[in-house]
């Protein structure tokens, strides 16, 4: 990949990764607020649960790019370990294509589905279900550069002091 394209892709993945991290913090805060309002104030916030579900779904699909980028998507590595390097290279190419096929299906049919549910309202929130469903095609499309980067320049996530 050309270097400007590679660095733009890295930036994009980093951006989606940061958004996902913020969404995780937001979901935690929402559920904590739910406990506080119900137990502490005797009156539960009624919208926290529904919003937290939507936030976590967005997080899952937004972080897919980083997950593929850093090879964190949990494969079974047995065949790769025993075949000669040339075959391994081929297998990894096929795997990358299959992952892209998967993301393609998610992006295309995810868009169709997000449009199909536009008439449906999310319970408790007066917004269209499309806002929740849109996480799938958006996340799938934004994950494509992550898959390509992982194939061309594999790198693991730095786990910092947690290891």
């Amino acid at each position: 990949m050309r270097s400007w394209a590679a660095s733009a892709s890295e930036k994009l993945i980093s951006l989606t990764h940061n958004i996902a991290a913020i969404l995780l913090a937001l979901a935690t805060a929402l559920i904590f607020i739910q406990v506080i309002t119900r137990f502490g104030m005797g009156r539960a916030a009624v919208w926290t649960e529904v919003v937290a579900r939507g936030v976590v779904i967005w997080m899952v699909f937004m972080v897919a790019g980083a997950g593929f980028r850093y090879g964190a998507m949990i494969p079974l590595e047995f065949i790769r370990g025993v075949v000669p390097p040339s075959v391994k290279r081929l297998v990894m190419g096929v795997v990358t294509l299959l992952v892209l096929l998967f993301l393609g299906v998610l992006a295309w049919y995810g868009t169709m589905m997000a449009m199909r549910v536009s008439g449906q309202k999310v319970a408790m929130l007066q917004i269209s279900m499309s806002w929740f469903y849109a996480a799938i095609p958006v996340g799938a499309l934004l994950a494509v550069p992550g898959v390509l980067l992982a194939h061309l320049a594999p790198r693991e996530l730095d786990r910092g002091a947690s290891e």
Binding site: H17, A21, A25, M59, V60, V63, G67, A72, L157, G160
Partner: peptide, 9 residues
């Protein structure tokens, strides 16, 4: 949060 998000995803 970034590491946790990846594992969760």
């Amino acid at each position: 949060f970034r590491i946790s998000a990846v594992s969760t995803g």
